[in-house]
Simulated scan of single mutants.
Amino acid sequence: MNRKTRVTGLLLALTLLLVAAGCGGGGGNEPAASSSSPSSEPTASTAEQTLTKIKFSEVIRSIFYAPHYVAMSQGFFRKHGLDVDMTTAQGSDKGAAALIAGTADISLVGPETAIYIHNQSGDKKLKVFYQMTMRDGSFLLSREKRDSFQWSDLAGKKIIGWRPGSSPQMVLNSTLNKEKAQGAEVVTNIASTAMAGAFTSGQGDYIQLFEPVASTLIRQGKAYYVASLGDAFGAYPETSYVATEDYIAKHPDVIKEFTAAVAEATQWLGTASDEEIAKALRPFFDGTPDDILVQSIHRYKDQDTWPLKPELTAESFETLQSVLIENGVLKQEEKLADPSAIADMSFVNALNPAG
């Protein structure tokens, strides 16, 4: 697929999704979750205040986004006067469409969606206001156990990967280019929720998965750990909290409190015991053993997934656009000179050291 065709396809898909979202339509290795996820009961102090309802859309369900689930289960959102009603979009394109259609107030999506929509010159713009992750969150697993791994080992092998234009797909492709790994066949037409099942049924030699699905397959003896894409590629602003410019302008206090709640949850993850972390995440990953939840958290901590200052910097913005251009979803002439075109870091910059 050439660059022009791919970009046109992405924009057409987004347009169709806007129509679907306007009709109430709802993507990840986790099952789709279109209903509200569990949150903690209000404390005595929060029960007395009126909570602001937030319609929130996450891109997929993954421990990659643990700070958000902690903010829900540990009451950080309620502490800040927010009642977060969460749905799972199963794709950044769908999460962005929900924002444009008004079926979501805030979405957790790839920041590239804000660039795509900015370049369409439509009536609505999206703004990143909090950069949650600064690494890719996927892991490469193999069908056969390997005593050592070189990226050149992928020559002639089939990898079950993510849909074209998604962050994990682009990071994998850029990593293969960076490592000069030639001859791998990356399968990108399997639905995200069906990827693990396709692999366990015999398709592919390798698979690219997020946690906790990666560790679950390893525990079951159906896959073996090979590499972290986050470590292999390096710093990359994969997932951000995003809202429309209009929503941010009308509800700056909501964005301020939302930002503070997630920042506090991230700090909590850095000091909590393994037992506390497992208990906090358990409601969102029904049936996943506690030790896998904890192991997944440690994998993400070890690769510095969650930045101490959740900021989309000029450097990370440059990295993002370079990856988009390399992967043919952004033309060189469409590159934005200033991250402020699609990002408002004022809420992050206003955080005090205690969160």
Rank of each mutant, 00 (worst) to 15 (best):
294 V>Q: 09
91 G>P: 05
307 P>M: 11
260 A>S: 09
101 A>H: 10
198 A>C: 06
231 D>K: 15
302 D>M: 12
245 E>G: 07
256 K>D: 08
255 I>W: 09
257 E>D: 08
326 E>P: 00
274 D>H: 12
67 P>A: 06
188 T>Q: 11
79 K>V: 03
76 F>D: 02
178 K>T: 02
353 P>H: 05
257 E>F: 03
227 A>M: 03
211 E>Y: 06
93 D>Y: 11
242 V>C: 09
101 A>K: 12
220 Q>S: 13
166 S>N: 09
204 G>H: 05
129 F>A: 14
96 A>L: 11
336 L>A: 00
24 G>V: 09
221 G>V: 01
286 D>I: 15
81 G>S: 08
296 S>C: 05
152 S>N: 13
159 I>N: 01
59 V>Y: 01
103 T>C: 08
344 D>E: 07
10 L>Y: 03
90 Q>T: 03
255 I>F: 12
70 V>P: 06
5 T>M: 05
151 W>M: 00
266 T>V: 13
139 F>M: 03
43 T>V: 04
32 A>N: 08
312 L>G: 07
56 F>I: 02
120 Q>D: 09
91 G>V: 04
347 F>H: 08
233 F>K: 01
293 L>D: 04
158 K>E: 14
271 T>S: 09
15 T>H: 13
155 A>L: 12
51 L>G: 10
9 G>V: 12
122 G>Y: 07
76 F>G: 01
282 R>S: 15
1 M>N: 07
287 G>D: 12
196 A>E: 01
14 L>N: 12
325 I>V: 15
233 F>Y: 15
189 N>R: 12
289 P>W: 11
44 A>W: 15
